[in-house]
Nucleic acid binder design. Structure first.
Ligand code: ZN
Ligand code: ZN
Ligand code: ZN
Ligand code: ZN
Lengths: 178, 178
DNA sequence: GGTCATGATGATACACTATATCATGGTGGC
DNA sequence: GCCACCATGATATAGTGTATCATCATGACC
């Protein structure tokens, strides 16, 4: 998980290994193209922060990012990283997981209808056992939320859906081990 | 809002008025009965915190609660209120709104199938204009989330759904005023 | 060229949110 | 009495997020 729902499991509870380098580079290239097309400035700083988020391969906190950012940018301070994160969220390049106060790269594959489309509907599955997270994009959930809100005359801007539970990997391990 | 979806609007952006005293008292009585039946100890401290949450009539932060709690309990400290809040959440008497780092009394009416049933499915609508919040309990949303998770072999424990947007009241005000 | 508005970053300080840890005291079983 | 269990008191610290002002680059405009 932590990459996409059908991926093999690799979350924060286990390997801590990052994306393969090529994945990150490709994502950065796509991000740059998206921002260019949109007139948004993916500056060097913002690109560095995005790279760090992607390289972590798991939800990462703002201050952990700050520590790493200081490796390449001494004097970086909390606002440095928070401003970059705000930009990246506005562009849909990363998401914040509220329950974890942490940030992850958007796992949406290009060509699934929306390519980093502004705020795309998404949900997070968070495993309480291994800490892995999976971003999913279930239209049924998005539709149900939109419907419930509309029935109350509520105009939806953004939706946060975060499910805590046990991932398939851990569940099968449980079933085997007892 | 802030009470139930069909209520007249009264959120943090406007009146700041609390529930009517009777509502709070009735809720406290129901909470006491629920805890008693369940073998959970709704102590004086926990009851005080619950009362403060209910009286605020809107999402309220832990430290705002702490300030008020000190009126009746000098020497109260952060752990005092956080421990009470943890208990109240476990009992389903209050909910935390993650996006706001704030707490609200559960608006679920008694007799809607689950009476403070342990973790009941719920969603929050948060108005970005006036700050009001509404707790809703849409079965369609809960079902869609459960289905999406089940298709991935994910076992759901708790679900957080928080929708940010414009409430019906503010939307109609916008339509009128331009 | 000079002026100005805009937006990004630097830099400092601060506010807000939450938990760890150990001590104290009450309640009830045995 | 003794002990296990739980709730609370009390202190300290960790973690997360903003406010504010200064500086600098860019590009529009005259
Ligand atoms: Zn995404
Ligand atoms: Zn897992
Ligand atoms: Zn509720
Ligand atoms: Zn509103």
């Amino acid at each position: 998980m932590t990459e996409h729902a059908h991926d093999a499991h690799h979350g924060s509870g286990h390997g801590h290994h990052a994306h393969r380098g090529g994945d990150v580079e490709a994502s950065l290239e796509r991000a740059a193209a998206t921002c260019l097309a949109r007139g948004a400035q993916l500056t060097e700083l913002r690109r560095q922060v995005l790279r760090l988020v992607l390289e972590s391969g798991q939800p990462i906190g703002a201050y952990a990012l700050l520590d790493r950012l200081r490796g390449e940018r001494r004097g970086a301070a909390p606002p440095t990283v928070y401003r970059a994160l705000d930009f990246l969220m506005e562009q849909g390049l990363i998401h914040k997981i509220e329950r974890l106060n942490a940030f992850v790269g958007c796992a949406e594959e290009p060509g699934h209808g929306h390519t980093h489309a502004h705020p795309h509907p998404h949900q997070f599955l968070i495993c309480g056992r291994c800490g892995s997270t999976a971003e999913v994009c279930d239209e049924g959930v998005a539709h149900a939320v939109a419907g419930a809100a509309a029935r109350l005359g509520f105009v939806v801007h953004r939706t946060t859906v975060e499910v805590e539970g046990i991932c398939a990997h851990c569940a099968s391990a449980d079933a085997t081990a007892g």
